[in-house]
Structures are given as structure tokens and as C-alpha cells.
Design a protein around this nucleic acid. Structure first.
Length: 603
RNA sequence: GGGGCUGUAGCUCAGCCGGAUAGAGCGACGGUUUCCUAAACCGUAGGUCGUGGGUUCGAGUCCCGCCAGCCCCGCCA
């Protein structure tokens, strides 16, 4: 319906110009044409679209909003193209113009979707028509030598969904896993392992990752308590970053082991990422600081290389520094993040040539990214038109409203969390099978439980606005009713049920489609909104908008399914209803797929 | 002290560029099944949108003050 909305906006603009040339022409000439403010109708009884522009024009024109709306509507009706598209426009309320598409046009739009694998979603056009600049989505980013835990859940799931939507829109997408594989932590860990478990540094898989995590904790404790150890650890970092072969070998082994553990989780969730950790940018760090020095941004303060931020003040009202070179000469994460931005925007072959860079990290890092983005901009690393965006998300909280922890107070491992979701889904399924006296084989149960469990975790996360903290609850996410993955999956299953009972969904569609029930029209209208929702997610980077759409679609479909017979209908009505079923199934499968959630035929 | 985010129904949350009577879901209460999976559908009750000002034809939405909670603030990421 995006294309229709564009057409209507243009027709409205022309109608305004015909009705009020003395106001519209100067406005258009100044590059600020009068905006008809076309929006989707806020309620079904208002039709398909509403134009709110008359209200805003009232003051400038010195007429009542209703009079203006009436004049615009009159001009619309003399436009033959408009009359072909819409019924008579209605003036309502203080001066809204309500527009209703002609039923035959809606039916024709729907029919056009039937053979279309993209379901009406256009491919994004590269500006200038050349090959598009890649979009980089930086997400997940666990730390080497640590296990993935709830803290990585949201970045991983949200980042993957955003990448899928951007890919579907036709952008080349680089999914980058900016793993923590460099920094001080390695100095600590390697120093400690040299002393207590040297074999781990020379032999692959000498210990498992759980032990490594324990070693890491010990190392961290020693680093905090023991000055001698701290000095040794710092020295080790310098060695590593300087390319010492022994340190590098140990580092490589640790990374390889962690990498396989991460991959197990990514495989379960069907998430694809290219690893490009912090270490990748090591060769570029010195150049970053040199660039900052050359542009005059670098200031040495207390021995540290700093860039003082504009508009961000510290404790005593002084500008806050971003430290890019520590007083010991080492670099820190700000330097790495700057090097990443610089590299990602740089023209190939010296960089990625990105047009848009998206960081999916928790909201706590907002000020860090604001600072880094500001410095990158002032250093001239962001090209004209380049977009650099932090996509923040809130904490995962337990049902007590506090940060999610295990009963013993530890952070929750991602693996355990997924396992529990699947176990609970399986218990649910088995109970239901027993209650309904159904019998299914173990493969069916395992596949269904795994799909539902993982889907529930993903959907629960994606369906809330990412900006706010999110309360994690197995009971809520696995519930069979409400805005949950099982509810959506079940709507899809119902359609597959119709297909199994003889509703040949793939048969050539009735032409033209004919509808006579309000439930059919409601479903048709919802199906046609899909393209607008996808474009909105691409722009706003809010997956919950897609979730809300799919939930509404499922609700509207369930109402239709409940109240309008499909297989018992005959002739054109049956064929038209089957077409609605087919499009609903296709939309659910595609939409859920863009969220990283596969569908089931039976459950 | 400075900065950021949040505050909407009993609970969990939506609310798009400022637009019509603020919406869902859960929970509560009441109804629906000879019919495509009732994992569904229909209905009822439930709101001072934290609070006080301001801008506007119009504010949950924008601006300012205040209250509450969370997060960040020089060499960790």
C-alpha cells in the first residue's frame, strides 16, 4: 500500500494547489510544499487513509478547517485518477478528510501479492542507481574466555532481526561480531594461566570453557588485589599487542576454543555472523591517534591522549575528555571503537565503504557512543550522508524487576536459558498431547519443543520496545494466548490445517477476488500493510513494530477463521478465502522469518 | 554535582511526524463447540498517561520546573 499512499499524497498535493494556489505555489517554490499529512486511518470506520493537513492550513489561510477540507475534497473528486482509486472522500470531525479505497482496487492489490515472493515489499534503491554501500550491523559481541550469558541475548536477537530486515530490503549487510578478544583482560588471563595451568597455553582444549571462566575470575581477583600481578599482566598485554609469538599462540588457542562455544549457540538460534574482533583493529590504532593529532583534536592531559568533547561536561563543569591513549602509551576501547568507525566508513580497499553503521549494544553505553561518534565526526571520518547509529536496548530483568540472575545469584548462561525454554515447551506439548489423546513420535515432539522454545525467547525479546528494560518470564513468553510466539505459530498451523483438509492454497487464484464479509475485508487490509511495516522497521530499527503487526494479523485471521467458513464455502467465495489464507500464511512465514523465527506446519 | 533513560489499567507492555472517544495482552467476571486443531472466538469491568506550569485550533507525544527509579561520568569494555 506504500505506492498507493504515495499516489494519494501526490493527488492531495495537487488538489491543495488547485484549491489554494496563492498559498501552495510559494510554499512549493520555497522547497516546503504544503503537507496534506496523509496517514493510515486511525480507526476502520474512517476508511483506509486520513488526511490531517486541512487543520494545519487553517491558520495560514484564515478559514475554518472544515471549509478547507471541503475545498480540497472537491478538488479531489474532479481528479479522474483519484476517483478511480477511492470512493467519495468524507469530511469528519474538526476537518479530517477520510479516504476509502474502492473495494475492487483493494482486491486487485491483494491479487497482485499472490504470486509475489516479496509480498509487495520493494527493494531499496541505491542513491544514484549504483551498487549500494553496505550496511554494517555490529551485534552480539561476546568476550573471549567467557561464556555467553543473558547480557548477550538482546544484542544477538535484535541485531539478527535488524540484519534480516535490511537484507530483505536488498541492502548488502555486513554482520560483524566485534568480540572482546584483545585488551587488558587477556594480560590477566594469560599471566594467571602461565602460573597455574601452563598447558592450556600450548595445547588446544586442555581445559573446557567452564574452567577457563573460573580461571578468568581468579585472574580478575588477583589483578584487583595484587600489584605485582597487575604489573605482570600489563606487561603481558604489551607483549601480546607487540606480537610476541608465545603470547600470540596462547591467545589464539583461547580464541579458538571460545569461538566454537559461541558457534554452538549461534547454530541453535540460526544466527550468522562474521567475527571481526577488537584485535582486527590493532594495526590501525596508532593511525587513529596520529589522525587526531594531525587535525588538532588531540590534547595531552595528565600524560593521557585525550579529545575534549563539545557540549558534554564533567563533574566540575569542565569539558569531558575521551581518552584515546593511556598515559602508559597503550590504547583502550575508545581507540578501538574509533578505529572501527574509521575503517568501516573508509573507501575499499582500505575499509568497508559502509553507508550506514549500526551498533546494537545496551543503553548503558549511550554516552560512550555519543562521545565516540562525536570525535569520529569531528575527525572527518564519517562521509557525507553516512549514518552512524547506536541502537540501544534495556536490561533483561527477572520477574522481581531486578537484573536477571540464577537462584544462586550468578549470571544466567545463555545455553541454560535456551535449554529451560525448550524443556518447558516440551512439557507443555506433552501435557497437551495427553489431554487431547493425541499421539506423536519423539522426533515431532523434539522438533516442536525446540522450535517453540527458541521462538518464544526470541519473540518475547523482540516484541517489546527495545529501548526499555525487559522483564523476562518463561510463563509469559510460552503462553499460548496473547502476544507470544506460540499464538502466532498456531495461527500459521491453522492455515496449514486447511491446506491438509483439501484447501489447495497454491491453486490459481480466483480472478477477481470477491469478498462480502467484514472479516474478509479486515484481513485483506491488514495483509496490505506489510510493506509499510517493513520499511518502517528498516528506518526506525524497531523490531517490535513488526511483532505488533504480525500479532494483529494473527488476531484478525483467527477472527476470520472462527467466523467465516473456508472449506465449506463454494465457488468464488471459497477460492477468494483460500487466497486470503495463502497470503496470511505467506506473510506470517516471511514476517516471522525476518525475526529469525521458523514456522511449524503442526504443533 | 553533571548527563542519559524510564514513569500510561491490578500485572506486562503498545502508542508512528502533535490529530477524532488513550489501545493490546494477561489476570478478573460472563458467554460460545453436531462445523477447517477451543492453543480459538464474543462480551463486561478496569485510566487524573508520575506531578506542576507552558506552547498549540489540538499534547500521552513538544518545551521548562519538580518527584521517583535505573544507568553513565579520565586512563575496564
Amino acid at each position: 500500500m506504500l505506492r498507493i499512499a504515495q499516489t494519494l499524497t501526490q493527488q492531495l498535493q495537487e488538489a491543495i494547489t488547485r484549491a489554494y494556489p496563492e498559498a501552495a505555489e510559494p510554499a512549493a517554490a520555497s522547497g516546503q510544499p504544503l503537507d496534506p499529512q496523509l496517514a493510515p486511518a486511525s480507526k476502520p470506520e474512517f476508511g483506509d487513509f486520513q488526511a490531517n493537513g486541512a487543520l494545519a492550513l487553517a491558520r495560514g489561510l484564515g478559514q475554518s478547517p472544515r471549509a478547507i477540507a471541503t475545498a480540497i475534497a472537491r478538488q479531489l473528486t474532479v481528479d479522474a485518477a483519484f476517483a478511480e482509486l477511492c470512493l467519495e472522500p468524507q469530511i469528519a470531525g474538526p476537518g479530517f478528510i477520510n479516504l476509502t479505497l474502492r473495494p475492487e482496487r483493494l482486491a486487485a492489490e491483494l491479487a497482485a501479492r499472490l504470486g509475489d515472493p516479496r509480498l509487495g515489499v520493494e527493494r531499496a534503491q541505491a542513491p544514484g542507481g549504483g551498487s549500494a554501500a553496505p550496511v554494517i550491523v555490529d551485534f552480539s559481541s561476546p568476550n573471549i574466555a567467557k561464556e555467553m550469558h543473558v547480557g548477550h541475548l538482546r544484542s544477538t536477537i535484535i541485531g539478527d532481526a535488524l540484519a534480516r530486515v535490511l537484507e530483505f530490503r536488498g541492502h548488502p549487510v555486513l554482520r560483524l561480531n566485534h568480540v572482546g578478544d584483545w585488551g587488558t583482560q587477556f594480560g590477566m588471563l594469560i599471566t594467571h594461566l602461565k602460573q597455574v595451568a601452563p598447558e592450556t597455553l600450548t595445547t588446544a582444549d586442555a581445559v573446557d570453557l567452564g574452567d577457563l571462566v573460573a580461571f578468568y575470575r581468579e585472574a580478575k581477583r588477583r589483578f584487583d588485589d595484587d600489584e605485582v600481578f597487575q604489573a605482570a599482566a600489563r606487561e603481558e598485554v604489551v607483549k601480546l599487542q607487540g606480537g610476541d609469538p608465545v603470547s600470540l599462540k596462547a591467545w589464539g588457542l583461547l580464541c579458538e576454543q571460545s569461538r566454537r562455544e559461541f558457534q554452538a549457540i549461534y547454530d541453535r538460534l540460526d544466527i550468522h555472523l562474521s567475527e571481526r574482533g577488537e584485535s582486527f583493529y590493532n594495526p590501525y590504532l596508532a593511525a587513529v591517534v596520529a589522525d587526531l593529532e594531525a587535525t588538532g583534536l588531540l590534547v595531552i592531559d595528565d600524560g593521557a591522549g585525550c579529545v575534549f568533547l563539545e557540549g558534554i561536561k564533567g563533574k566540575d563543569g569542565q569539558p569531558l575528555p575521551l581518552i584515546v591513549r593511556k598515559s602508559d602509551g597503550g590504547f583502550n576501547y575508545a581507540t578501538t571503537d574509533l578505529a572501527a568507525i574509521r575503517y568501516r566508513f573508509a573507501v575499499p580497499p582500505s575499509g568497508d565503504g559502509a553507508g550506514r553503521v549500526i551498533y546494537v549494544t545496551d543503553a548503558g553505553q549511550a554516552s560512550h557512543f555519543a562521545a565516540v561518534f562525536q570525535v569520529a565526526g569531528r575527525a572527518g571520518w564519517i562521509p557525507e550522508g553516512g549514518r552512524l547509529e547506536h541502537v540501544p536496548f534495556g536490561l533483561v530483568q527477572g520477574e522481581d524487576g531486578k537484573k536477571l540472575k540464577t537462584r544462586s545469584g550468578d549470571t544466567v548462561r545463555l545455553k541454560d536459558l535456551l535449554d529451560e525454554a525448550v524443556e518447558r515447551a516440551e512439557a507443555d506439548l506433552r501435557r497437551r498431547l495427553a489431554e487431547e489423546d493425541r499421539s506423536e513420535d519423539e522426533a515431532f515432539i523434539a522438533h516442536g519443543a525446540t522450535t517453540v522454545g527458541h521462538a518464544a525467547v526470541k519473540y518475547a525479546d523482540l516484541s517489546t520496545n527495545r529501548g526499555t528494560n525487559y522483564q523476562f518470564s518463561f510463563d509469559r513468553m510460552l503462553a499460548l494466548q496473547g502476544n507470544t510466539a506460540p499464538y502466532l505459530l498456531y495461527a500459521f498451523v491453522r492455515i496449514q490445517g486447511i491446506a491438509r483438509k483439501g484447501g489447495a492454497l497454491e491453486a490459481p487464484a480466483q480472478d477477481p477476488l470477491v469478498f462480502d464479509q467484514p472479516q474478509e475485508w479486515a484481513l485483506a487490509r491488514q495483509l496490505l500493510q506489510f510493506d509499510a511495516v517493513i520499511v518502517e522497521v528498516e528506518e526506525e530499527l524497531l523490531p517490535n513494530r513488526l511483532c505488533a503487526y504480525l500479532f494483529e494479523l494473527s488476531q484478525i485471521f483467527n477472527r476470520f477463521y472462527d467466523q467465516v467458513p473456508v472449506l465449506k464455502a463454494n465457488g468464488p467465495a471459497r477460492a477468494s478465502r483460500l487466497a486470503l489464507c495463502r497470503l496470511t500464511a505467506d506473510t506470517l512465514r516471511l514476517g516471522l522469518g525476518l525475526l529469525g523465527i521458523p514456522t511449524l506446519d503442526r504443533m
